[in-house]
Design a protein around this nucleic acid. Structure first.
Length: 263
DNA sequence: TGAATAGTACGTCACTCGGC
DNA sequence: GCCGAGTGACGTACTATTCA
């Protein structure tokens, strides 16, 4: 493995890799927020074999295609082993935080998210006791489901469920209809002609089509949940930032009060 | 204005996990 | 152990944006 200082490698630049004898042109080197390891694509100008690089610290490591594939495979497997489903993560977060505002519970009924969710006008206080404190900024959840700051700026959109849990209203979530196909897609044949080699082949291809169709729908649903999950995280960030701001202001006002008493 | 690039959506494959 | 659901990774197509 050869090492090239990253300051020498920039987009579109021709770089001689020294003892490899290869002259490469770097197509794209992406280093988002100084991430520990970054993949880039390099097109060799003299040899047809593909070369990859990884970024570590101040150096870019140049590896062969095989080395790269091996490392990537390991990485993928590690990620797969570690990461639970979005549903699991989100439900755990919801229970951990005792129904913290901004988190959406993913339930089996999610696909039917067009149900009406009751909304209320409430005030979010900094103490969680439901009582707005003097000098403390409050956030108002209007019956339109919009949480706004005193300045009137919309922060995030919510609705509150019957159990007190805050939900993102269905209208805020991309609608998804589970397709229960009344007719099969092109190429899917429902008849079976078992017993002949041709029939076995047709049965196999029918099963494959069915599997692909189900997987297609599953993938679509999975993407929808992923989007919802990301939206929830973003909402949570917004809520926590506002809570933080509120607490800071409360601290400030208490300090001032304390100083006045002292004087 | 056309090429390059970025962003997004979708289909498929490979794999894990949980229920039976 | 098998099977179905869920999901990450990857490739592809399409659209929007940027730039020379």
């Amino acid at each position: 493995m050869d090492m090239v200082n990253d300051s020498e490698v920039t987009q579109g630049q021709q770089t001689d890799l020294g003892d490899t004898g290869q002259n490469i042109s770097v197509v794209h080197v992406a280093i988002p927020n100084q991430a520990v390891q970054v993949q880039s694509v390099i097109q060799p100008t003299s040899q047809p074999s593909v070369i990859h690089t990884t970024h570590q610290g101040n150096t870019i490591h140049v590896v062969t295609e095989d080395e790269f594939e091996e490392a990537e495979g390991k990485k993928r497997r590690e990620i797969l082993n570690r990461r639970p489903s979005y549903r699991k993560i989100l439900n755990e977060l919801s229970s951990d935080t005792g129904g913290i505002s901004g988190m959406t519970k993913i339930t089996e009924e999610d696909s039917n998210s067009s149900q009406e969710v009751p909304t209320h006008t409430i005030q979010i206080a900094s103490h969680g006791d439901g009582i707005p404190h003097t000098g403390v900024q409050t956030l108002t959840m209007s019956n339109t489901g919009l949480v706004t700051s005193p300045g009137g700026a919309t922060i995030v959109q919510y609705a509150q469920g019957p159990d007190g849990q805050f939900f993102i209203p269905a209208t805020n979530v991309q609608a998804y209809q589970i397709a229960t196909p009344t007719s099969l897609p092109q190429g899917v044949v429902m008849t079976t002609a078992m017993g002949s080699p041709q029939g076995v082949g047709e049965e196999a291809s029918r099963k494959r089509e069915l599997r692909l169709l189900k997987n297609r729908e599953a993938a679509s649903e999975c993407r929808r949940k992923k989007k919802e999950y990301i939206k929830c995280l973003e909402n949570r960030v917004a809520v926590l930032e506002n809570q933080n701001k509120t607490l800071m202001e409360e601290l400030k006002s208490l300090k001032e009060l304390y100083c006045q008493k002292d004087a």
